[in-house]
C-alpha cells in the first residue's frame, strides 16, 4: 500500500532527476573516492575530489541532494519572512536575530537555485501549521520560535547526511559545509532564546509536539567510529551526546517534512504556472 510518505517521496524524486535511485546508489561514492585517490597521488594540489566540469550536468545524486536542500530553504525563507511580516509576533529586541537568519536562508536558496539551474524544483505548497499540529505558529511567539529551531536543527542534520553524497564535487561539498555550520549557528541562537542549550542533549525535543520527535531521534548516540565516548572519557551521556550532531537520511527528512510540504506532481508542473503560490516563486522559475 502506498503511504502518503511514499507519494511525497516519489513525487520529489520524479522531479529531481532521471535517476530516482541516486540517493542510495553507493556506486557514485565509490567511484569518486577511487578517482580522487588516483588524482591525489599525481596532482600537486592534493587531493581534489573533483569538480563537475563546466557544461557538464551535475551527477544525479548531487541534483537530488541539492533539490531536497532547496526544499528546506523554501520552507525556512517563507517561514521567517512570514513571521517577520506578522505584526506583534516577534519581539522588537529579537527582530535582528530573525532578519539575520532570513538573509542567510535567502542566500542559501539563491545559491542552490543558481547551481541547480533548470534542475531546480519549484517551491512546493507549504503549511506551517503542520496540518494543524501548530495552529498558533504565527500568533504565538513561543510556537514560532520552537518551530524555527526545529527547522534549524533538522537542517543541520540533513546537510550532514548529504555531505558524503556530494563529496565528488569540491565546490558543492564546501558550499554545503558552509551552509551546514551556518544552520548550526542559527539553531544555537534560536535554541538559547527558547531557553534551551545551544546544543542538543540526548534526543530531547523540548517544547514541541511529539510528531516532531523524528527531528531529534538518533541524537542520543554516544558511539563515534566504533568508540564509546562515555566509556572513554567518563563523562555523562548527556554531555557526550551534545558534543556530536548526527546525520539524517533523505528519507528521514522527507518523513519529517511531510506535514509541512506538498510537492507539485509530475514533471509537467515543474516549470509551469501554479495559482497557489506567492510572487516570490515567479522569480525563482527558470
Amino acid at each position: 500500500m502506498e503511504t502518503i510518505f511514499d507519494k511525497v517521496n516519489s513525487a520529489l524524486v520524479q522531479n529531481l532527476s532521471e535517476h530516482p535511485e541516486a540517493f542510495h546508489d553507493s556506486r557514485y561514492l565509490n567511484s569518486s573516492a577511487a578517482a580522487s585517490q588516483q588524482i591525489g597521488n599525481s596532482d600537486l594540489f592534493t587531493p581534489t575530489n573533483g569538480r563537475t566540469p563546466l557544461g557538464q550536468p551535475l551527477p544525479p545524486q548531487i541534483v537530488a541532494a541539492l533539490n531536497l536542500g532547496l526544499t528546506t530553504e523554501y520552507l525556512e525563507t517563507e517561514f521567517y519572512a512570514t513571521g517577520l511580516n506578522t505584526p506583534g509576533l516577534i519581539p522588537n529586541d529579537l527582530r535582528q536575530v530573525f532578519v539575520r537568519i532570513l538573509l542567510n536562508e535567502v542566500g542559501h536558496r539563491e545559491t542552490l537555485l543558481t547551481v541547480l539551474g533548470f534542475n531546480s524544483i519549484p517551491k512546493p505548497f507549504l503549511d506551517f501549521t503542520a496540518r494543524g499540529a501548530v495552529p498558533d505558529v504565527f500568533s504565538n511567539f513561543q510556537s514560532f520560535l520552537n518551530l524555527g529551531r526545529t527547522f534549524e536543527d533538522q537542517g543541520v542534520r540533513f546537510v550532514k547526511g548529504q555531505a558524503p553524497n556530494v563529496m565528488s564535487d569540491d565546490f558543492v561539498l564546501t558550499t554545503a559545509l558552509r551552509f551546514h555550520s551556518a544552520e548550526a549557528r542559527h539553531a544555537s541562537e534560536l535554541r538559547r532564546i527558547a531557553g534551551l542549550k545551544g546544543w542538543i542533549t540526548l534526543n530531547q525535543r523540548g517544547n514541541i509536539p511529539a510528531i516532531f520527535q523524528g527531528v531529534y531521534d538518533g541524537e542520543e548516540n554516544v558511539v563515534q567510529g566504533g568508540i564509546n565516548l562515555v566509556t572513554l572519557t567518563g563523562l555523562p551521556a548527556t554531555t557526550v551526546s551534545e558534543a556530536f550532531d548526527e546525520p539524517l537520511t533523505a528519507d528521514q527528512v522527507l518523513r519529517n517534512l511531510q506535514p509541512f510540504v506538498r510537492f507539485r506532481r509530475g514533471r509537467g508542473n515543474i516549470f509551469g504556472n501554479d495559482s497557489n503560490d506567492s510572487g516570490e516563486t515567479e522569480s525563482n522559475k527558470k
Binding site: 550532514k160 551546514h180 555550520s181 544552520e183 548550526a184 541562537e189 545551544g198 546544543w199
Partner: peptide, 12 residues
C-alpha cells in the same frame, strides 16, 4: 561533519 556543527553552535 558531526563535529563542525557543534563548533558552529559554540561559536554562535
Amino acid at each position: 561533519g558531526k563535529i563542525v556543527s557543534v563548533e558552529g553552535r559554540h561559536a554562535a
